[in-house]
Design a protein around this nucleic acid. Structure first.
Lengths: 153, 153
DNA sequence: TTTTTTACTAAAGGTGATTGTGCAAACGTT
DNA sequence: AACGTTTGCACAATCACCTTTAGTAAAAAA
């Protein structure tokens, strides 16, 4: 019940790369009929293996030419400040990802903006407004070597 | 032709969060009928704004409990070594993302594995096998504050 | 004004999603 | 070995939506 067999894994691999594939197409790739494939997909959804289906946009096409990994360290590490930081990050549209890290930095943020000017404004008028930020370190990503949402299973 | 109007942007925002939404549902959200919505979606696909549709898995559910940002600097910065690195990264299943950076480090990798043990093996038997790697710095991500594939448009 | 473009509504045919039934193989138990 | 249970699959039928086409209206350009 809990485990994924090889067929499940193959279905997940296919859907991670193209969720528009029909149950029919997947079935013929697996030498099955539609219904077992359909049932498996529904089970994978209901059991939470598949979290959601999304469209992936071309970031250059929509004018997000600049990607930055922003490393943030807090000045003081008390719970209230941390909570406040995490809350405020949610509302920043430029922040696509934010993680609490362990090591040299406290947080790592992935930022998408249209230009260096926009990034400057993001830093100056949004990120810097959050209290208690100590060190702030920007690493600009100038080329995508590999970029996927797929997990290997 | 080239630009996105407000309707396009709303459609893209909806599809970035749930690509299973039907044209019918989107149409009713926008107070439109089905065909203009459908035509716009097809146009957004054909013009490359929408790159693909994917299923997003729950990484904990599929046993990828450990996420690491791995910062790599090369020993020598000649083109051949760089190209070789970029090629070999493609084949590493644990690497979900890899970017060429500018600043203190040369590359940033996002790694997903099931355990610290697995990460150790990844470093030892896969990443370290790549020639010319100098500094290698692992930052463990212990909590997702924000995690999406959506671009704000 | 005329032409062209753009975005829309409406309707219809094709296709896939969805569901139910039944079969067959595998497994566990007696 | 025989029986019951479970699991996974095939088949078929219905339903909903996708997809396309044709036609209309409004706005922009000539």
């Amino acid at each position: 019940m809990e485990n994924l067999d090889q067929t499940d894994k193959t279905i997940l691999r296919i859907l991670q790369n193209d969720s528009k594939k029909t149950a029919k197409e997947i079935a013929s790739m697996l030498n099955l009929t539609v219904s077992p494939v359909y049932e498996r997909i529904r089970r994978l959804e209901n059991q939470g293996f598949i979290k959601k289906y999304v469209a992936i946009l071309d970031k250059m096409r929509i004018g997000k030419a600049v990607t930055v990994m922003c490393q943030v360290s807090m000045r003081y590490h008390n719970e209230a400040f941390i909570d406040e930081f995490e809350e405020q990050i949610q509302d920043l549209q430029e922040v696509q990802e934010c993680y609490h890290a362990v090591g040299q930095v406290d947080f790592i943020l992935k930022i998408h903006v249209g230009s260096l000017e926009e990034y400057h404004e993001f830093l100056r008028y949004k990120l810097s407004k959050i209290k208690n930020i100590g060190v702030l370190n920007s690493i600009f990503l100038i080329k995508e070597i590999k970029q996927t949402s797929e997990y290997y299973i």
